[in-house]
Every structure is written in C-alpha cells, then in structure tokens.
Simulated scan of single mutants.
Amino acid sequence: MKLRDRQDKVERVLSFYKPSNGSPFQETSTHIRGEVDVLGALLMMDNVDQQKHDAISSAGIRTGIHSKFTFETTIRQKDTLVAEFVASEKGQSDVLGSPLSLAKVFYAANISDWFSAIAIPMGAHCRDVGVATNSFYQRGGLTNYSSHGPSLLNEHRGSAVGLMVRKPNVVASLAQFVSVLGMQPGSIGITRIFGTFGQIVCQLSRSTKLSLMGIHQVPKLSSQQVSLGALAVPVGLFNRRKGPEAVMEASSPPIETHTEENVMAGSIAVMLESELDESTRIGGWLEMQKSNPKHLQWAVTMSDTPEDDFGWGLSLAGSIQGPKSWDHFQAETFLNFNIGKRCRLQPALVYVMDGTAQFPALMFRSSWSL
C-alpha cells in the first residue's frame, strides 16, 4: 500500500509535464484476493514414532492456518503484475502461524493472442509458468495428492523466466529456473541449481485435456563465496577450462551430500483431466521422479463439487520409492459444503498404508475467500 501511494504521487507530478503521454499504470486498479484455510486432523493411532511421522509426511497431510493474499494490477491493458503474500504455520506448536511475508512477484506480458512471456524474480513454482491445467484441483481434497497434482508443479524453484505459445488445440510452455542452495557441507562455494521446465497440453476433445510436463535440473558450484546480488547469475559460454567441480574432486576426497541426488536428475509427469459436466470432474496423474522408473507417484481423483450445492470427492493415490511394489498407498473421501459464495467446509476421511504403518485419519478444512 505504501508503494502504491508513492506511485500515485509520482503519477500526479508527471501528469503536469506529460499530459499527452499516458502512464502504464494510468486508470488501473489493484485487485485484492484473499484465501484463508484452517486445516485440522484427528490421527487414530496410539503413539507417533518416526515411522508413523514419515507416513504422515508422505501422505501430504497438512494442518494449521494457511493464508494467502494476492495483489493483481493490469498494466497496458494486456500485462499483469502480481504480488503474493503468504503466511503459514511456523511449527507444530504454533497454531496462529507466521506473519504475512512477500512470497512471490509475478509479471506476465501478453505480447499477442498466441504468445506471452513470464518473469518471476522470486517465489517461482512450475505451476506459475506452466499451462493452467490444475483448475481440476482447486476444489479438490485435503491432502497434497488430491489437491495439488504432481509434486514437480509445487516445489519452490527460486526465480524464473518463461515463454508460452497457444494454438487452437495445443498449448506449450518453456521456462528456465535459477535457485540458490547456499553453502553445502564440504563445498568451497555457493551452489546454484539451473532447471529447465517444459509442458505441452493437448485438447483431445471438448472436455478432455492431456498434459505432458517435465523438469531437468543441474547444479553449478561457484568457486568463491561471492554474492552478486539477487538477480545476477554468472553463465560461462566461452571459457571451457575445468570448473570448480573438477577442482574440488582433484583436491579433496568426495563427500556425500543430499544435493546431488536430489537435483542432478529431473522429473516427468503426465496428467489427464476430463469434465463430465459443469461440476463433475475425473482425472489422474503419474509422475516419475529422479528420471528413475522405480520412483513413481500417482493419483486418481473424481469429484462433484457444484458451487451452490452439496459436493463430494474420492481419491486414490500411492507411490513407489524402491523395489517394493506398494511403498505407499492412501484412499481419501471428502464432502464439500458451500456456505454462501465465500466460505467452504470440507470434512474428510483418509486411510494411509505406508510400509508397516497403517492408520485412518479424520480431517477437516474450513476455507474463506476475501
């Protein structure tokens, strides 16, 4: 609000000197959207050991208060500037959560009807630069499997630039991500991760979409602990000498870290969505993580959630993280009650099987939109 007030003062000053040239912010308004979710869970288990704690995390059961406020401004009648503020729980014992903080800055330039460009200086996710096919999950269930889609869409990736091309039955998106991990154990510099994301969406019929997406990540290690700033990224195109990785391997023995395993490979996912009518949807997705067919996640969801009536949903999901045939499996069913246009209540029953840990859980979510 302070920035907006300063901007209005500058616009009034400039209007005296340039009466004929319009400002990109002239006669525009900022639209504010707010979402507040309160999630709770009753876990039916005797005690919580490390194995059950891992099972809860694998099931994507989130609790606490999650708030998000979005400020959207239209620029030049075609472009969009978005600032997103988020507050979530700090820890297991902090019910009220953290204060609002700036989590994302997003700028979309619609150059033409079929071509657009996106820049995200901070807080980028793959879903921000991808084709908006996850509208199916906006009224979905309460866990990450049933409400968010493939995990590669929701992981934080730092900064990003992307391009999107639209044709009558095909939409394609391509983006480049840059994130900083900082100093890793045993390293001699700062590790940056460069990720390339691509997505193609095909309109198979009037109500059915097929989406293929993937991301490939490569870590780069800076030889010195020098900070160049938030938006300065060194890229070597002409110097072909040995990089810091080779120097480190020659000067010291290898040190095991979790970074290489997590970021060297990428993920590939396929998603299918179909709308049976205005409120009934069925869909599913399959994701192969770390470019390894032994690391799979999947989910199948069906829901009927009309905006002005009682709704329901059913989801089956699971994952394979090794030689086991069923490393994780869960079933979820939820009810949807709309109270007016801005409030929603969702009770749910989730049954989780993760290794030898098995337990049901009663969940409840109350959502308000502002």
Rank of each mutant, 00 (worst) to 15 (best):
S251F: 11
G229T: 06
K242H: 02
I200N: 09
M302P: 09
Q289I: 09
C202R: 06
S267H: 10
T301V: 06
Q224A: 10
L212Q: 01
N262Q: 15
K209D: 03
P293V: 09
K290L: 13
F238P: 00
M213C: 11
Q289G: 12
E245M: 01
R281V: 06
E260V: 10
A232C: 08
A269C: 14
T301C: 07
D304E: 09
R281H: 14
M271S: 06
S205K: 01
L231T: 12
S252I: 05
Q217V: 10
P293S: 03
A250R: 10
L228H: 15
G214P: 00
M248Y: 03
M302S: 10
L204F: 07
E278T: 14
M213L: 11
N292P: 09
V218S: 06
V233S: 08
I282W: 12
A246W: 06
T208L: 11
L204C: 11
L212S: 11
V235M: 12
E278C: 12
V201A: 00
D304C: 08
M288T: 04
S303R: 15
Q297L: 02
A265Q: 00
G243H: 10
E260N: 06
M248W: 05
M288R: 02
Q297F: 02
G229K: 07
L276C: 05
L228F: 15
E287V: 03
S251A: 12
L286Q: 01
K294N: 15
E273N: 10
E261Q: 14
L221C: 11
T259K: 07
M264I: 10
A230E: 15
Q224T: 08
V218R: 13
S222K: 02
S211W: 00
S291W: 13
D277G: 13
E278D: 04
M264Y: 07
Q199V: 05
E256M: 07
D304H: 14
E278R: 12
I255R: 05
L221G: 01
M271V: 12
L231V: 11
K242T: 01
R281T: 05
T301H: 02
V300K: 01
K294I: 00
I268P: 03
N239I: 08
I255W: 00
Q203S: 03
L210K: 02
I200Y: 02
E261S: 14
A269S: 13
R206Y: 07
K242V: 05
S205I: 00
M288K: 01
L237T: 15
P253A: 07
I215F: 07
H258P: 04
V247L: 08
A265D: 07
V263S: 11
L272T: 03
M271E: 11
E245H: 04
V226R: 05
G283E: 10
L210Q: 02
P234R: 15
S207V: 06
S303V: 01
